[in-house]
Structures are given as C-alpha cells and as structure tokens.
C-alpha cells in the first residue's frame, strides 16, 4: 500500500473514532436524560463512524494500492457507495434532529433533507448515472451538510454558546471537505481529494475538542 492510501485510511480511521466517541456520549447522555434528540444524534454519529471505518478497513484489510484498485474496481466501487450511503443516512439523521429543534418540527426542512437522500434510493436513476454515482453521493452529502451548517449557525447566533460554535465550526469544515472531494472527483485531482481528507480531519478534530470540553472533566 503506498503512502497516499495509508494516509487516506489513517485519516478516515481517526475520523471514525471521533464520530464513534460523539455517538457514545450522545447515547450516554440520552440514557440519563431520556432525550430522543440525543438518541437520534447518537445513531447518526454511529452510522457515520461505521461508514468511515468501513472505508478505512477496505484499504487496510485488502491492502489496496493504485494497481490493486484497478483489479478490484467493482469491490472498491461498491465499498465506496456503501460508505457514501451510510454517511448520507447519518447526516440525514443529524439534519432531521437539528431541524426538529431549530424549526420546531417543521415538515419542510425534514422533507427537503429527505429529498436529497431519495435521489440515492431510485434504482432506475442510479443505473443511468453509472460512473457519476460518486459525484451524486458527494452532492447529497454537501446539501445535507449545508443544511446542518445553516441550522448550526442559527443556533449559535441565538445562543452565542461556545460549544455550539465548536459544533458549527466542525460541520463547516466537514462541509468544505466534501466540496473539495466532489471537486476532486470532477477534476480528477488526487491532491484535492487529500486536501479534502485533511480538512475533514480538522473538522473531526474540532468535534473531538467539543466532546472533551462537554464530557467528563471538561471545562464548559
């Protein structure tokens, strides 16, 4: 496995661990407060963590590099699609949780988010997309993340809460990362894809800081 794939897998692995840590705290606090918001959020981050873990594992366990990627094209393509679908469902759950809070259960926000994911669930249209499926998946993630960032911005604007700013900052970075990855795919740029991965890591790093600040021994 060459350095590029090792770095890519390592970044995804770190992101997965952070997402699973957020999921754990969401579950733990959801249990003590009985908050359905936290339970949904926890499930969303769990799916995100599992998705990132699946992508990292695909490269690590199958020891893939650029040459083997070509040999196992179908496998890698399927793994990437599963990873994108898991992320889309995860971000949809986070978007719906946020929408319920910010817009008091507004159906419009939930339906808009649902439409973005519906685009991925139409088998006939997916077959027509062929090799552009990855771009479509990334586009869905960008739409969902843009909604999360917008709603996070509303929450921070209202509360001026430092922890809310951390969450807003982390989702903003993850959004920028997916815009970079979408551009990388459209422009066939490996470097831009790596930049996207690094920005995503910064986003998850900020999310980790939020978990540490709000969790045990945290200063908030």
């Amino acid at each position: 496995m060459n350095a590029y794939f090792i770095l890519n897998s390592a970044l995804n692995l770190i992101g997965a661990l952070v997402a699973l840590a957020v999921s754990y705290y969401g579950f733990r606090y959801g249990k003590v407060t009985g908050s359905s918001f936290l339970k949904t959020l926890s499930l969303g981050f769990m799916m995100l963590g599992v998705g990132l873990l699946a992508q990292a594992s695909a490269f690590i366990f199958f020891d893939l590099d650029a040459v083997r990627l070509a040999d196992r094209g179908t496998f890698v393509y399927s793994a990437t699609m599963i990873y994108l679908a898991l992320q889309a469902v995860a971000y949809l759950m986070i978007t719906v949780s946020y929408a319920r809070r910010v817009q008091g259960g507004s159906k419009a926000a939930v339906e808009t988010a649902g439409l973005a994911v519906l685009a991925l669930s139409q088998p006939s249209s997916l077959l027509l997309l062929g090799t552009h499926l990855f771009e479509l998946g990334e586009l869905v993630l960008v739409v969902l993340l843009a909604m999360i960032v917008f709603q996070g911005g509303l929450i921070y604007g209202e509360s001026k809460n430092r922890l809310a700013l951390m969450v807003l900052g982390s989702f903003s970075l993850i959004l920028v990362a997916h815009v970079a990855e979408l551009s990388a795919s459209l422009l066939s740029s490996g470097l831009l894809y790596l930049v996207g991965d690094l920005v995503q890591l910064a986003g998850f790093g900020l999310l980790l800081l939020f978990v540490l600040r709000s969790g045990p021994d945290g200063r908030n």
């Binding site: 606090y29 809310a164 969790g215 045990p216």
Partner: peptide, 20 residues
Amino acid sequence: GFVKEVQRAEAFLSAFGVSL
C-alpha cells in the same frame, strides 16, 4: 454522580440548541 452526569448532558445538549 447523577448531578454531574446531567450537567454534562446539559452542556452537550446546549451545543445543539436543546435544553433539558
């Protein structure tokens, strides 16, 4: 211990605009 845990949960929730 319960008070500490609920206060942590409250801080965590506040980041998402949710109150107890």
